Amino acid sequence: MRHIGKLLLLTSLLTSSLAFGQITADPEERGERGAQDPLRSRTPEGNPLPFMQRLRFGGGISGLSIGNPFSIGVSPVVAYQASERAVLGVGVNYVYTRLKLYDSAGQRYNFTANQYGGRVFGMYEIVPKIIPNLYAHGELESISVQDNYSGAGLPVNRTWIASPLVGVTYSQRIGRLAGINLSALYNLNYTTSSTQVYGSPWVLRISFF
């Protein structure tokens, strides 16, 4: 429980400074789109925003799995608004996993694992005129996993596992400076060893940037 408390505290710190970037509105384009979606990568004059003004910083909860094994993680993110519809980014992941096992007498044992790594991702808004803020999402994640749970009485080694994830992300903007992103991704490289990172080939994620 101490690990979970620390993870949730870290998540709250990450999300307290969600994202920043100067996002300006083009009157013509706003008029065409119902005055609800300001430009993300250009000034009102049509010039590209400077690099630093396209950056967004944030993070969120990753690797959430309720069940056995249970897992929860945090993932700081730096995202770059490459164009009006495309977002590129990098992140760092940490996932805590707990496995519950019972012996023949019904005694419960908790085994734990701490996984860490990084990821690169890309998002592209699919059909903005029909469903605004819905993105196709692809990423490559590489995580160092323990080959055995701590507390199992066996030597613990680490192995790097690469996971290509594909799916969709819906981004709900908060004002002009940040957004809440809900992602549903599928692990194309899900194997038995991957259960030490995620309890399912489906990865559900909430992030803020």
Score class of each variant (00 low, 15 high):
G89T: 08
I180T: 01
S12W: 03
Q196A: 12
R56H: 07
N181Q: 09
G138V: 15
G91R: 01
L165H: 10
R108M: 13
L99D: 06
G179V: 00
I66S: 05
N148C: 04
G179Q: 14
N47P: 00
T112D: 14
P132C: 13
S104I: 11
V74W: 07
V166E: 04
G34V: 09
I72L: 15
N68T: 09
G63E: 11
P27F: 05
L134Q: 06
S104E: 14
G153T: 11
S163W: 06
G167I: 10
N114E: 06
G122S: 04
F20D: 03
G179N: 14
P201K: 01
L165Y: 05
Y124G: 02
I130Q: 11
R56D: 08
A35L: 08
D37G: 00
M123A: 06
G34Y: 09
E141M: 13
N110R: 11
I130S: 12
K100Y: 13
S163T: 14
L7Q: 05
A79E: 15
V168N: 01
Q107H: 02
T159M: 12
L9F: 11
T195R: 14
W202P: 02
K129P: 00
R56M: 12
Q146N: 15
L140C: 04
R54T: 12
D26Y: 02
F57N: 07
Y198Q: 11
A152R: 11
R42L: 13
Y149T: 06
P76R: 10
Q196H: 12
V168K: 00
R40W: 03
S83M: 03
R2T: 13
L88S: 05
V74K: 03
P164L: 11
V74I: 15
I206A: 15
V78Y: 05
S104T: 13
N181S: 01
D147C: 00
Y190L: 02
N148D: 15
P201V: 04
